[in-house]
Simulated scan of single mutants.
Amino acid sequence: MAAGLGVLAPTAAAEAGRRVLPGDSIQDAVNYARPGDIITVMPGTYYENVLITKRLTLRGFGARTVIKPPVTAVTPVAPAVPPASGTAPAPAAPGAAKAPAAATAPSGRALACSQADSGICVMGTAEQPVVGVDIRSLTVSGFKRNGIWASYTDRLSVQRVISEKNGTWGIAQERSTRGLFRDNTARDNAESGLFIANTVDREGGATDTLGAVVRRNTLTGNRIGVTVRRVRNLSVYGNTLTGNCGGIFVVGDEGEPGAGDMTIRNNRIHENNKFCKGNSRLPDIQGVGIVLTGAEETVVRSNDIRGNVGASPLSGGILLFKSFVGATNTDNVIRDNVVRDNKPADLANQGTGTGNRFVNNRCASSVPAGMC
Rank of each mutant, 00 (worst) to 15 (best):
A9Y: 07
A12I: 04
A12G: 04
R19M: 08
P22C: 03
G23D: 09
I26W: 09
T40C: 03
E48M: 01
N49L: 08
N49I: 04
I52R: 02
R64G: 07
V66A: 04
V71Q: 15
T75M: 00
P76V: 11
A80T: 14
P83Q: 03
G86N: 12
P91G: 07
A92N: 08
A92C: 06
A102I: 00
T104W: 00
P106W: 02
A110C: 01
A110W: 00
L111F: 13
A112W: 02
Q115M: 12
M123H: 11
M123T: 14
G124D: 08
A126T: 13
R136W: 01
L138M: 12
G142K: 00
K144F: 03
R145A: 11
N146W: 02
I148C: 04
I148E: 07
S151Y: 01
T153P: 01
Q159Y: 08
R160W: 13
V161G: 00
I162P: 03
I162T: 15
K165N: 14
I171R: 07
R175T: 12
D183E: 15
T185W: 03
T185E: 07
A186S: 13
D188E: 15
N189T: 09
F195Q: 09
F195N: 06
N198L: 06
T199R: 12
D201P: 01
R202H: 12
A212E: 04
R215A: 09
N222H: 00
R223M: 02
I224M: 11
T227W: 02
R229P: 01
N233F: 06
G238Q: 09
N239L: 03
N239I: 06
L241K: 00
G243D: 04
E256H: 10
P257Q: 13
G258A: 15
M262A: 09
T263C: 00
N266D: 10
N267K: 05
N267F: 05
N272G: 10
G278P: 05
N279C: 06
R281W: 14
P283C: 02
I285D: 03
I285Q: 12
G287M: 03
I290M: 07
L292S: 11
E296A: 14
R301A: 12
R306G: 12
A311K: 15
S312M: 02
S312D: 04
S312P: 05
I318N: 11
F321N: 13
S323F: 11
G326N: 07
D336A: 12
D336L: 09
V339H: 03
D341P: 00
A345I: 07
D346N: 10
G351P: 04
T352L: 13
T354Y: 04
V367K: 12
V367C: 01
G370E: 11
